[in-house]
Lab assay of single mutants.
Amino acid sequence: MLDDRARMEAAKKEKVEQILAEFQLQEEDLKKVMRRMQKEMDRGLRLETHEEASVKMLPTYVRSTPEGSEVGDFLSLDLGGTNFRVMLVKVGEGEEGQWSVKTKHQMYSIPEDAMTGTAEMLFDYISECISDFLDKHQMKHKKLPLGFTFSFPVRHEDIDKGILLNWTKGFKASGAEGNNVVGLLRDAIKRRGDFEMDVVAMVNDTVATMISCYYEDHQCEVGMIVGTGCNACYMEEMQNVELVEGDEGRMCVNTEWGAFGDSGELDEFLLEYDRLVDESSANPGQQLYEKLIGGKYMGELVRLVLLRLVDENLLFHGEASEQLRTRGAFETRFVSQVESDTGDRKQIYNILSTLGLRPSTTDCDIVRRACESVSTRAAHMCSAGLAGVINRMRESRSEDVMRITVGVDGSVYKLHPSFKERFHASVRRLTPSCEITFIESEEGSGRGAALVSAVACKKACMLGQ
């Protein structure tokens, strides 16, 4: 009897593995994704193909990295998701002549009506938060230079001027797309009239992360975010950046690689679950690469896999709870928690219980395998993109072996128990001629924006502006 049951459990697990095998990517698959990513990057950089390229390769006008001589107080704003952060950054000489960066910050959550109302409502709310922060720190009387981390696709015309191309991540505030974001912020500050600010720089969160990590390690020339969304930036040779005049030196390019796949480059790798996630998203047909990796989508992918296993009578005796059938019910943090389970399955059992399920031991094991399959594919897909960037940098610099540091931020990278190990191992397999160091950014977005502002202020002083 026991043997029969054991055989049935083994057969069930084997069927589960057959279904989950769809998520496995072979090294040849990853090399294919990497080569296609490089081709799209090239198209994004070139003037004649930029418009139709899915990977936009947006110039950021960040050319210099901090040298350690900029000092002063800077205000930093960070808008990239449902939370908005205001930070005071003091850049100065530390002990023994070292450079020191001290920060104080406060988080504000953005109400739904500000995210989806008008641009005026959104930026009025942001300036209200700045006003509140300055009151708390008794700094209303000071006109501070301000660095703005704005983590949406922007076409820069200068370091302090950028046109919002399109909202992502659930934002829909009308009247912002096609307009200068810094102008919208300046107008809102003017409307309030109770404080003055000098907006000197606007950067993407990947750029802010790279600059913040450069402060720790001067070989950091790539910034990457794996959180709600997924994106990367890197220092490109100016001669390859056709959208900006000049051939000397390097400029940081914001790849906006989340949109890779929007022209069909990933079609052969998309599964039924991916198509369902895409169809029910706020932007169907867009940001397809990001939807395979980002935390906004990972939990939902797992939920759809679990429903398939229920329908195949391989999980929960073929019956799903009402909660499990509800879109968004299986949160991405559950994926991390399930994979963090120590082996007694308590954590998995508790999560499934909150979803109205009474799982068996085998159910718990199957749910864990589903989570591992989805998150491992995410790590491997992400590795193909980064390997594409790094191999490109090595080739354009004609280096036999390139040493490089990548600064990384984002909740999936930082909080998932195995993502970074799987990701690092896969990147290294795909970049055999590179020695890569990964560092995690601390308060990256805010500190990085302030350091970019410090560079901009120093330049302005040198130019006598």
Rank of each mutant, 00 (worst) to 15 (best):
G227E: 05
I439N: 01
R392Y: 08
Q347P: 01
Y215R: 00
K172Y: 03
E256Y: 12
H416D: 09
F133G: 02
L463S: 14
T326I: 10
G68L: 11
R327T: 14
E399K: 12
N204L: 04
S280L: 11
T118P: 11
C461G: 15
K32E: 03
V207E: 05
K190W: 10
V222N: 01
T82W: 08
E9Q: 02
F84Y: 03
T65K: 04
R63C: 00
P111N: 05
Q138G: 11
I189E: 07
A119D: 08
G193S: 06
R327A: 14
T116H: 13
V305C: 00
N180F: 09
D400S: 07
E27V: 07
C233W: 00
I130D: 00
I366D: 03
F84G: 02
R392L: 13
K291R: 12
M298C: 09
E96I: 10
T168Y: 15
E421I: 14
T65Y: 09
Q347A: 10
G261Q: 04
M381C: 07
L122S: 10
T206K: 00
E95S: 11
A370C: 09
R155A: 14
D344V: 02
T149L: 13
V86S: 08
M115P: 07
A379T: 07
P145E: 02
E120S: 12
C382D: 08
G328K: 11
F74S: 00
S281E: 07
D124W: 05
R191W: 02
V277D: 03
E67Q: 12
P111E: 07
G407Q: 03
K296Q: 13
Q26I: 13
L185I: 03
D311N: 05
V71A: 04
D274G: 02
I348T: 07
L58D: 12
L430R: 06
L307G: 03
E22G: 00
T354S: 06
E93M: 12
S360W: 08
E95P: 08
R403F: 12
G407D: 00
E93S: 11
L288A: 14
S411Y: 05
A173W: 08
M197L: 08
K31N: 09
S131R: 07
M197D: 00
G81F: 14
V253Q: 00
V277K: 10
Q239G: 12
A259F: 09
S280Y: 15
G318V: 08
D205M: 02
G294C: 14
K12I: 15
C220Y: 02
L415I: 09
Q323W: 12
S54F: 06
N204A: 03
T437N: 04
L288I: 14
A119V: 12
F330R: 00
S433M: 09
D160I: 14
L77F: 07
R345N: 05
V389C: 06
M37A: 01
R368T: 07
N204F: 05
G264L: 08
E51D: 04
S453N: 14
S281F: 04
N204Q: 13
E290T: 10
L271I: 02
K15N: 04
K142I: 05
V207W: 00
S212G: 13
V71W: 01
K15L: 14
G295Y: 10
Q323K: 09
V455H: 13
G246Y: 02
G44F: 00
M393V: 13
D311V: 05
A119P: 06
V452D: 05
G170F: 11
D217W: 01
D73V: 00
H380R: 12
T65P: 00
E40F: 04
V91Y: 09
I390G: 01
D29Y: 08
I436A: 09
C364W: 02
C371Y: 02
V86A: 07
P417M: 15
G261K: 01
H218Y: 08
D341C: 02
A173Y: 03
Y234G: 00
Q106D: 04
R85M: 11
C382E: 08
K458Q: 11
Y273M: 08
A454Q: 14
K31I: 13
E48I: 15
S426A: 10
F419A: 03
E221V: 06
V91I: 04
P59Q: 05
V203N: 00
R428D: 11
L79S: 07
T82V: 09
V244G: 02
D365Y: 07
D3A: 03
R394S: 07
L451F: 09
E395L: 11
E96P: 15
L314Y: 07
S398T: 04
C129M: 02
L79I: 05
P66A: 10
D158A: 12
E40T: 07
D42S: 09
S321I: 10
M251T: 13
F171C: 11
Y108D: 06
K190G: 13
E196K: 05
E256L: 14
E216P: 01
I19S: 15
L184E: 00
F148P: 06
M34Q: 09
L185Y: 02
L146M: 10
Y108V: 04
T149I: 05
I225L: 03
T103G: 03
D400E: 05
I130Q: 10
K12D: 15
T168D: 14
Y273D: 08
E93R: 07
L165W: 09
L451S: 13
K296P: 15
M462L: 13
V374A: 05
V200S: 03
Y413G: 07
D363F: 01
D247M: 04
G223W: 01
T118K: 12
V408T: 12
L301S: 12
T82I: 04
S174P: 03
T116L: 09
F438A: 02
S340N: 07
Q239Y: 08
T206F: 02
T82Q: 00
G92F: 08
I211K: 00
L301T: 03
V86C: 08
L165P: 13
W99V: 07
K12C: 14
R345M: 03
T49N: 12
E442F: 11
V277S: 08
V16C: 10
I163D: 10
G175I: 10
V89D: 02
L352M: 02
L184D: 15
D78T: 06
A320S: 11
R447F: 13
D113W: 15
S212C: 06
D363R: 00
T437W: 10
D262G: 08
C461L: 14
N204D: 08
M251V: 10
R394M: 05
K458V: 15
R358G: 04
S64C: 08
R7Y: 13
L314G: 06
K13A: 15
I126L: 08
V412L: 13
V207R: 00
F133Q: 05
F171V: 12
R392Q: 13
D262H: 13
E339D: 01
T362D: 10
S373F: 02
L144S: 10
H137M: 09
I348Q: 05
R428L: 14
A450W: 15
G318Y: 06
L301K: 11
E256T: 13
G407Y: 01
E421R: 10
E96D: 14
L45R: 08
L463Q: 07
H416S: 15
